[in-house]
């Protein structure tokens, strides 16, 4: 008898839990509570019991019947008041049950976009240390001993020979020394500058560096590649210019400016990246014959690209990590 009661309760519970349609509720009502239902059947069994066992089961049966009834009404009531079937009974203005997605930091989203463009052009992605040696950061990149960048004013030093890298270019030197051309690499990462924190500058930023070394790499290929990139990132109609500049590790060197005109403001040229043909001194220093091989390199700042694209005017907001900011992207 006891086993039978337990089995019925168990079955009832599992059926009522999963019921989501009116028909099913009716079916359950019939199955358990009708004159030929399981509960009625239990009471029939009860009548057959020996007299001395009756008091024990009588109470239990009544209790079970009431409990099951209550559970049924609760589920059925819940169903009819709130759920499904007829939308007249639903309050669809209630807020939804929340299912959130997280976010990638906007700077990494920009990086992802840039990586995607260059991966399409056959670039591999490489990584390197942020705590670098003077050798890779400066010497291997044709910075003369007394170059102003090697002063304390621009670079965070740990000691005479170690420093926080000021650009991602040391990875260029590492790649040239460890890999045979062709080298077609994109190198993203954090870089550091000894600058006070303000709306315009931060002590660190994220850079992406590109390097291509092979036979017959030309300046015309560099400009072609970067024009393609600029149009991909800023749109087909972007107005750009290549402007000669100077970097110790490239020659000829250039900067790329785009014409920038926020709504209602006067336009101006804004620098977005630096580039050039890898200086033969850099190739030779890192073990590549500069007569046989040539190459180009370029570098751009992810913060700057992001600020331009989204109209952000204070670099510090990237590193404040206010959830209200993080969730916008």
């Amino acid at each position: 008898m006891l086993d039978k009661i337990e089995q019925i309760v168990k079955n009832f519970n599992s059926e009522i839990e999963t019921a989501t349609q009116k028909d099913i509720f009716e079916e359950i009502r019939n199955k358990y509570f009708s004159r030929k239902g399981f509960i009625a059947e239990l009471f029939d069994d009860f009548k057959q019991l020996p007299k001395d066992e009756k008091p024990k089961y009588g109470q239990l049966l009544n209790q079970t019947k009431n409990e099951l009834n209550a559970i049924f009404e609760k589920h059925f009531g819940h169903y009819s008041s709130k759920n499904l079937e007829s939308s007249f009974n639903l309050d669809l203005t209630l807020p939804p049950k929340i299912e959130n997605l997280g976010t990638k930091h906007i700077l990494n989203q920009t990086l992802l976009e840039i990586k995607d463009i260059f991966k399409g052009l056959g670039f591999s992605i490489y990584d390197g240390p942020e705590l670098e040696s003077d050798y890779y950061n400066f010497e291997a990149l044709n910075f003369p001993e007394d170059h102003p960048a090697r002063d304390m004013q621009d670079t965070f030093f740990v000691n005479k020979t170690f420093l926080l890298r000021t650009h991602t270019s040391p990875v260029q030197a590492r790649l040239m020394q460890s890999t045979k051309p062709p080298i077609r690499a994109l190198i993203p990462g954090k870089v550091y500058r000894n600058e006070a924190i303000s709306a315009k500058s931060y002590c660190l930023f994220h850079q992406v560096e590109g390097l291509f070394i092979d036979k017959d790499v030309t300046f015309a290929e560099l400009t072609g590649t970067l024009i393609y990139f600029t149009k991909q990132y800023f749109g087909e109609n972007v107005k750009y210019r290549f402007r000669p500049s100077f970097f110790p590790f490239t020659e000829p060197s250039s900067e790329v400016d785009i014409w920038w005109q926020p709504k209602g403001k006067p336009g101006r040229w804004l620098e977005i990246l630096g580039c050039g043909m890898v200086d033969p001194n850099v190739l030779e220093f890192n073990g590549i014959d500069s007569e046989d091989y040539s190459g180009y390199a370029f570098g751009l700042g992810i913060e700057r690209m992001t600020m331009l694209k989204y109209g952000i005017d204070d670099i510090r907001i990237f590193f404040d990590n206010d959830k209200r900011f993080l969730k916008q992207f």
């Binding site: 991966k119 490489y126 993203p188 550091y192 969730k327």
Partner: peptide, 30 residues
């Protein structure tokens, strides 16, 4: 050439965190 992406696992970790409703932060290293 063989393509290399030394940042691919990092990107995968980010994808997983996005699916788990976490927000990425980037803080000052100093």
């Amino acid at each position: 050439n063989k393509k290399v992406d030394q940042t691919s696992l990092r990107e995968k970790v980010r994808d997983i965190f996005v699916g788990l409703d976490l927000n990425e932060i980037i803080t000052n290293s100093l």
